[in-house]
Design a protein around this nucleic acid. Structure first.
Lengths: 255, 255
DNA sequence: AAGTGGTCTAGACCACTAC
DNA sequence: TAGTGGTCTAGACCACTTT
């Protein structure tokens, strides 16, 4: 029977969280199962509702529990994870037609859709360094919200030096078959190399609502830069991915 | 002056959080600065302390604020980020002497130290698949807690088929110069290739306390598998990194 | 000793979901 | 309509840090 040890040094809400966490891990409550309501837990643990809510808040930020207003508390079920492999950027993949996101989504059985916004801007310090241009240089910026079966799953912002995009479909919403990389190669910038840097953090308010993230879901922030055959950076790209829906994979030689 | 709009649809605590967030982003409170105390904020916003604490809790899980018991509320300062590049696993690096962590830490100006635990176990389904052995096979497991200037920064667990480690220093706490990869190569398993998969999630209770993570800090979970010249997996490794202290970088060709 | 954040109580009413 | 989680009040005492 669940109770609180009033002489235990731990605060009550931690004892409750530890107890519920143990039950979940041991399988007493499985993925998708409903927990007793907050009021029932309050009676079970002989405490106040706020204390129970503190415990539940802890398990929510740990990503273990999901609260649904008017319905109840549920053990969070694992989401099918989409794997993003390095090979999504191989030339063969790029030339196959659509962009990387479309290809991935369709292979995984999702119906992809994209909202695009294109505008011009000037380079701040960070983008200037990534693209090896001067701060204040003119850029084309492409912001995209990618959806799988109409569920937002990925934010992406691309920056390109304005003169590389000038007069191409990169300046339009629809960049045509193969996406911006195909347009760059048509212009003589053969893509030679990518760098990617990966970080994780909690989402901003805007990202959380755009991606409809549950409390306790971090994001993966990936910055990719594309270099042409002369070693010149031709595009850089910030991707924000819901961490519970994506896995990134890389492969490299040991030499 | 800060106040709450009682007719605004948003809950009070969100209005307060939005207001404080705006002030932080606009620079009214810079990194490391102290905010007014909870009781002062309660008066400023003309509400109850719990409502202020809810707002602060939001900003803490977003990673914007840090609360220090008995001291006050502070804007979280950016931590110096350690970059983990693919090249940390190059043969030249590995043969230079110490393991990857020691090399990285010393280059970054930290004094590295490591707690190690070595024991034998049997393969569960996941490890069996990664190492391409049968479930239940005998393994050597090496658990490590890495510290930089005595601050825990990284957890690492390695699994190797028992027969590859048998009779080598891989079974000991101190594996000798070059670490386990050097011992494997001495035994004729030349390392050819690594795969890494990267995910992000909120830490478990154990990880949070082992790595001394602040509320609102996710972890990067990296699984690396090493393959020998015959394509056989010889080791697999789970790394858990504090996301606010690490950045992973990768580089690959566009072909 | 004074000020800070951390924990806790015993209520109340609102918003949402299901029957 | 009943049950659920979400928000809010007005207190109280504890644990920690600083002076």
């Amino acid at each position: 029977m669940p109770t609180i040890d009033r002489s235990d040094g731990r605060p009550y809400y931690r004892q409750i969280a530890d107890d519920l966490r143990r039950r979940i891990i041991q399988g007493q409550y499985g993925p998708g199962d409903q927990l007793p309501s907050e009021r029932v837990l309050t009676e079970d643990y002989e405490t106040s509702r706020l204390t129970v809510r503190q415990a539940i808040g802890l398990l929510r930020t740990e990503g273990l529990l999901l609260a649904e207003h008017g319905r109840g508390l549920f053990v969070r079920a694992a989401v099918p994870v989409q794997r993003l492999a390095r090979t999504r950027l191989d030339r063969a993949q790029r030339q196959a037609g659509a962009g990387a996101f479309q290809t991935d989504a369709q292979r995984a059985g999702f119906q992809p859709s994209v909202d695009v916004d294109v505008y011009s801007a000037t380079a701040d310090a960070r983008i200037a360094e990534l693209l090896q241009v001067s701060t204040g240089s003119r850029l084309i910026v492409r912001e995209r919200l990618m959806m799988a079966d109409k569920v937002p799953v990925q934010l992406s912002t691309s920056w390109l030096p304005a003169e590389l995009a000038a007069g191409t479909r990169i300046e339009l919403r629809d960049t045509g078959p193969g996406g911006i990389y195909a347009r760059l190669e048509e212009k003589g910038h053969l893509l030679a190399r990518f760098t990617e840097s990966v970080r994780a953090r909690m989402p901003s308010q805007d990202e959380a609502s755009a991606l409809r993230l549950a409390v306790g879901t971090p994001v993966l922030a990936v910055t990719r830069t594309a270099f042409d055959q002369h070693g010149r950076p031709v595009e850089t790209n910030d991707m924000v991915l819901a961490a519970d829906r994506y896995e990134l994979t890389y492969e490299f030689s040991a030499d």
